[in-house]
């Protein structure tokens, strides 16, 4: 499955005014993979994604994308290289129409967007129906679709998603994960941060578990799904009695 590491994080630390949120973590994502970071609130998952996109300055460590060092670059430069983040809480622009939200996702591109808009609307037919509506009037699920669609508009090679299932009804969560698989099939590498460990592990090729800023476990999605510690800590299943 994996051939080359498209994203390689080594010894990455992120601090907020003396408090270390991420402590010297290392992991990698290979081209074409779905990799997930799971963990509880405050484990440092979001901080890791924010550091990769340049929204937070790492206090140490390196972030390599296709062999190129990213830390120290500005967010717009990083996005231009082909990494994009679907932020936590969707963060669509409520005052822009659905179509404008898609267009702004391709802000750096100067070529014609018609084909891409059609592609995204094919993935999310609801967005096409509502293309003239202000994004603020969409439901939570629709906003999540829009946030993913908006990220796809930049034609990223890696798309990172921060808790895409947060606050959504179970049936919509299923839809979100179907889309994640679909996007991956079309060649986009995915780094997924989730608290919904069950869904995330099922969708992922490989997974890392984060606890208080450190990576404590890693393995294939399947392995971790069957791991006893993971089951009790994240999947809400009682330990089997010996």
């Amino acid at each position: 499955m994996s051939n080359e590491n498209i994203l390689e994080i080594s010894d990455l630390s992120v601090s907020y005014g003396g408090i270390q949120a991420v402590k010297e973590i290392s992991f990698s994502v290979a081209e074409g993979e779905v990799v997930t970071l799971i963990g509880a609130n405050g484990a440092g998952k979001s901080s890791t994604l924010r550091a990769i996109t340049g929204l937070e300055k790492p206090s140490q460590g390196s972030i390599r994308f296709c062999g190129e060092e990213l830390s120290g670059l500005s967010t717009d430069a990083i996005v231009e290289k082909g990494i994009t983040l679907v932020p936590e809480g969707r963060r669509v622009f409520p005052n822009l129409t659905v179509l404008e939200n898609l267009r702004i996702g391709a802000y750096m591109r100067r070529d014609d967007l018609t084909a891409d808009i059609e592609w995204v609307c094919g993935l999310f037919p609801r967005l096409k129906e509502r293309s003239w509506q202000k994004a603020g009037t969409l439901s939570g699920g629709e906003q999540q679709m829009l946030a993913i669609g908006r990220a796809l508009m930049s034609r990223p090679s890696v798309i990172m998603m921060d808790e895409p299932s947060l606050g959504l009804a179970p049936i919509i969560v299923q839809g979100v994960f179907d889309i994640i698989k679909e996007i991956n099939k079309q060649g986009v590498t995915i780094l997924l941060v989730e608290q919904n460990a069950n869904m995330a592990l099922k969708a992922a090729d490989r997974a890392y578990v984060m606890e208080t800023g450190k990576i404590t476990m890693s393995g294939s999605g399947k392995e971790l799904l069957e791991n006893d510690e993971i089951k009790t800590a994240y999947l809400g299943k009682a330990k089997k009695r010996a």
Binding site: L55, S74, P87, R91, F93, L96, I104, Y107, S154
Partner: peptide
């Protein structure tokens, strides 16, 4: 215009605007 769209986006959310590649 594209600049105007960026202005409206920046007026709502600096950080997400940055994620769109807007300077």
């Amino acid at each position: 215009t594209k600049t105007g769209m960026a202005m409206r986006a920046v007026s709502k959310d600096f950080e997400t605007a940055r994620l769109m590649g807007i300077k």
